[in-house]
C-alpha cells in the first residue's frame, strides 16, 4: 500500500532541509507490558490501540455480529489486563491476548449454539476496486451481476456453517493472513493440525459457495 506523505512534514520542510526531529519510535511491547504490570493504564491503552483492530476483526469474522464482537473484544482486553500478572512472557503479548480472545469467542459460540443472528459490518467503498472482487465479476464468472450485499451474506452464512476450529483457521489464515506457525501458537496446536483443519474447512466452504466459484 502506498502511504501518503504527512502534510506537516511537507509544510515544515519546503526546501529539503534535514528533518529536525524524527518521529518517536514506538515503545517496545515488553516495556509496555512491564509498565502495565506496575499499574500504568496509559501503557495499557497503548497496547490496546496496537491490537484492537486485529482482535476485533478475528472475533467479528467468527461471530458475524458487530455487537457481539464489540463486547467480546472489550472483555478479552479487560481479562488480559487482569491476567497480566500471570503472563510469563513465554510468547508475545500479541499471541497471548489473541489466545484469550479466541478462547472467549469459542466459549461464547458454544453457549450461543444455533442462535446465530448476523449483524454485519458494512463493506468499505474500496471493495469494488479489490482485485478479488473484480476477478469475481469478470467474464470467467458465470454470475456477473453479483450483488455485493448478497455475496457478503452468503459468505458469512457459509462461515457460520463451519465448526468453530475450522472457522477460526479460515479466519486467521485466509481472511487475516496469519501464517501457519502463528495460528499454531494461537490455537496451541501443531502446524499439521492447522494445515489439515484449513484443508477441510476450505473444502466445505467451496461446497457452500459453489454458485460463486464455478
Amino acid at each position: 500500500m502506498i502511504m501518503a506523505e504527512p502534510l506537516s512534514r511537507k509544510a515544515s520542510n519546503p526546501i529539503g532541509e534535514p528533518h529536525a526531529e524524527p518521529p518517536p519510535e514506538p515503545i517496545a511491547e515488553a516495556e509496555l507490558v512491564k509498565r502495565v504490570r506496575r499499574g500504568d493504564l496509559t501503557a495499557y491503552d497503548d497496547l490496546v490501540r496496537r491490537y484492537q483492530e486485529r482482535i476485533y476483526a478475528t472475533i467479528y469474522h467468527m461471530t458475524s455480529n458487530h455487537e457481539d464482537a464489540n463486547d467480546l473484544a472489550q472483555e478479552a482486553f479487560i481479562k488480559a489486563f487482569h491476567a497480566l500478572k500471570s503472563f510469563k512472557g513465554g510468547s508475545s503479548f500479541y499471541t497471548w491476548v489473541y489466545r484469550i480472545a479466541v478462547n472467549k469467542t469459542i466459549n461464547f459460540l458454544k453457549q450461543r449454539k444455533n442462535k446465530t443472528q448476523m449483524s454485519l459490518d458494512n463493506l468499505d467503498f474500496q471493495v469494488e476496486h479489490d482485485p478479488a472482487f473484480v476477478a469475481l465479476i469478470s467474464d470467467k464468472t458465470p454470475r456477473r451481476e453479483v450483488n455485493l450485499a448478497e455475496l457478503q451474506e452468503k459468505l458469512n452464512t457459509a462461515m457460520q456453517k463451519l465448526s468453530e476450529p475450522h472457522r477460526l483457521v479460515v479466519t486467521l489464515h485466509d481472511v487475516q493472513g496469519l501464517s501457519h506457525e502463528e495460528i499454531a501458537k494461537i490455537m496451541d496446536c501443531n502446524i499439521g493440525t492447522v494445515r489439515s483443519r484449513l484443508f477441510y474447512a476450505r473444502q466445505q466452504m467451496q461446497a457452500y459457495l459453489s454458485d460463486y466459484l464455478k
Binding site: D45, V48, Y56, D121, N122, D124, V127, L136, Q206
Partner: peptide, 26 residues
C-alpha cells in the same frame, strides 16, 4: 475461494469505532 474470502477484509465497523474502543476498555 481465497479471493472471495479476502473480500471479508472489507467488512469494517462504523467509522470512528476504534477511536473510542481503547477508552471504553480503560
Amino acid at each position: 475461494l481465497r479471493r472471495v474470502l479476502a473480500l471479508k477484509r472489507h467488512e469494517q465497523p462504523p467509522p470512528g469505532y476504534f477511536h473510542n474502543f481503547s477508552r471504553e476498555v480503560i
